Amino acid sequence: EGLCAVCGDNAACQHYGVRTCEGCKGFFKRTVQKNAKYVCLANKNCPVDKRRRNRCQYCRFQKCLAVGMVKEVVRTD
Rank of each mutant, 00 (worst) to 15 (best):
L3V: 09
C4S: 03
C7W: 01
N10I: 06
C13S: 13
C13D: 10
Q14E: 07
Q14A: 15
Q14S: 14
Q14I: 05
Q14Y: 15
Q14L: 15
H15R: 06
H15L: 11
Y16L: 08
Y16C: 14
G17P: 00
G17C: 15
G17S: 03
V18C: 04
V18Y: 15
V18F: 07
R19F: 14
R19W: 09
R19H: 14
R19K: 13
T20A: 02
T20P: 00
C21A: 01
E22D: 13
E22K: 09
E22Q: 13
E22Y: 13
C24R: 00
K25Q: 11
G26Y: 00
G26R: 06
G26E: 05
F27A: 00
F27L: 02
F27D: 02
F28P: 00
F28N: 01
F28M: 06
K29E: 15
K29C: 04
K29P: 07
K29H: 13
K29S: 14
R30Q: 11
R30A: 08
R30D: 10
R30P: 00
R30I: 06
R30F: 10
R30L: 06
R30C: 08
T31V: 09
V32T: 12
V32E: 14
Q33K: 10
K34S: 09
K34G: 13
N35C: 14
N35E: 13
N35F: 08
N35D: 14
N35R: 06
N35H: 07
N35Y: 06
N35T: 06
N35L: 08
A36S: 08
A36P: 08
K37C: 06
K37L: 07
K37A: 05
K37M: 14
K37Y: 12
Y38C: 10
V39M: 10
V39Q: 04
V39C: 06
V39S: 13
V39Y: 03
C40S: 02
C40R: 00
A42M: 05
A42E: 15
N43H: 15
N43E: 05
N43G: 05
N43W: 11
K44C: 02
K44V: 03
K44E: 03
K44W: 07
K44Y: 09
N45S: 03
C46L: 01
P47M: 04
P47V: 09
P47D: 14
P47W: 05
V48I: 04
D49T: 12
D49L: 05
D49I: 00
D49G: 09
K50Y: 12
R51Y: 07
R51T: 14
R51P: 01
R51I: 03
R51F: 13
R52D: 11
R52M: 11
R53I: 10
R53S: 13
R53F: 08
N54T: 02
N54Q: 10
N54M: 03
R55S: 06
R55P: 14
R55E: 10
C56V: 00
C56G: 00
Q57P: 14
Q57Y: 06
Q57C: 09
Q57V: 07
Y58R: 03
Y58E: 09
Y58G: 04
Y58A: 12
Y58S: 14
C59T: 02
C59G: 00
C59Y: 01
R60C: 14
R60S: 10
R60D: 03
F61W: 09
F61D: 01
Q62H: 03
Q62R: 04
Q62D: 06
Q62F: 03
Q62K: 13
K63M: 10
K63G: 02
K63R: 05
L65G: 04
L65C: 09
A66P: 01
A66I: 08
A66M: 10
A66N: 14
A66V: 06
V67L: 09
V67F: 02
G68D: 02
G68I: 02
G68R: 03
M69Q: 01
M69S: 01
M69I: 01
M69D: 01
V70C: 11
V70Q: 04
V70R: 11
V70Y: 01
V70P: 05
V70L: 10
K71V: 07
E72V: 04
E72K: 14
E72G: 09
V73M: 10
V73D: 07
V73I: 13
V73R: 08
V74K: 10
V74M: 12
V74G: 11
V74P: 03
R75S: 13
R75I: 11
T76Y: 14
T76W: 08
T76Q: 06
T76V: 11
T76G: 13
D77I: 03
D77P: 14
